[in-house]
């Protein structure tokens, strides 16, 4: 399990970002579809969507299904791990960082990138399948979470992150810039 070296936010997002105005005009473009943040109990702390034409479930059911998928995929990878002799039994709950985890999966219509912090915070980005590796962006988002949510004295742990925490002006727009602009460069969009 990697740790993220202090809680300082790197001066700029992992890939060079442009101005915030630019990303505001272009709401449906870019490669991002959805973002989820879960805590270790499966509470969805934050959900954002930018481009989601298909919706099969209510949002609560959707969050449960997503958390369940990640949980099961983690026990799947921990049991499948071909490099480890002592894998334990399938389905036995594991601590964050214990056992073989996964960082992304890809289907023909989307790519899901996943990160779990040592405290069990799960950050999920659902993007266009052509997007390259997003692990650095996830670490950046985790740092934003630490800076603007965990360090906020009004925030009670385990509750959804509300916009009134001034996450919006600084945080979410920054998240946007952090991963929207690089996508556009990667995809060759204008």
């Amino acid at each position: 399990m990697q740790f993220f070296g202090g809680s300082d936010i790197s001066p700029s997002p992992p890939n060079p970002s442009g101005s915030g105005n630019n990303s505001k005009n272009n709401n449906s473009g870019g490669g991002g579809n959805m973002m989820y943040v879960f805590n270790r109990n499966g509470v969805c702390l934050l959900y954002r969507e930018w481009n989601r034409p298909l919706r099969t479930l209510s949002s609560q059911q959707d969050h449960k299904l997503m958390f369940g998928l990640l949980f099961s995929l983690k026990s799947f990878t921990a049991k499948m791990d071909p490099t480890n002799v002592d894998k334990g039994n399938l389905g036995v709950p594991q601590l964050p960082g214990q056992g073989c985890s996964f960082h992304s999966f890809k289907t023909n219509t989307y790519k899901l990138t996943f990160m779990e912090s040592p405290s069990g915070i799960k950050i999920i980005l659902v993007t266009n399948p052509r997007i390259a590796d997003l692990r650095d962006s996830l670490k950046y988002i985790y740092n934003l979470y630490v800076e603007y949510v965990v360090k906020n004295p009004l925030y009670s742990p385990g509750t959804p992150i509300r916009d009134s925490f001034r996450l919006k002006p600084r945080g979410v727009e920054e998240l946007r810039c952090a991963w929207r602009l690089p996508f556009r460069d990667l995809l060759g969009e204008q």
Binding site: L54, S72, D81, Y110
Partner: peptide, 26 residues
């Protein structure tokens, strides 16, 4: 079942399930 659930969670239509899963060691 993971394959089937991944189709449900797709943001767009026409998803045919996980093609590549990248884990830490495989």
């Amino acid at each position: 079942s993971m394959h089937a659930i991944s189709q449900q969670l797709s943001p767009t239509v026409g998803c045919s399930g996980i093609e590549l899963l990248e884990a830490d060691s495989f």
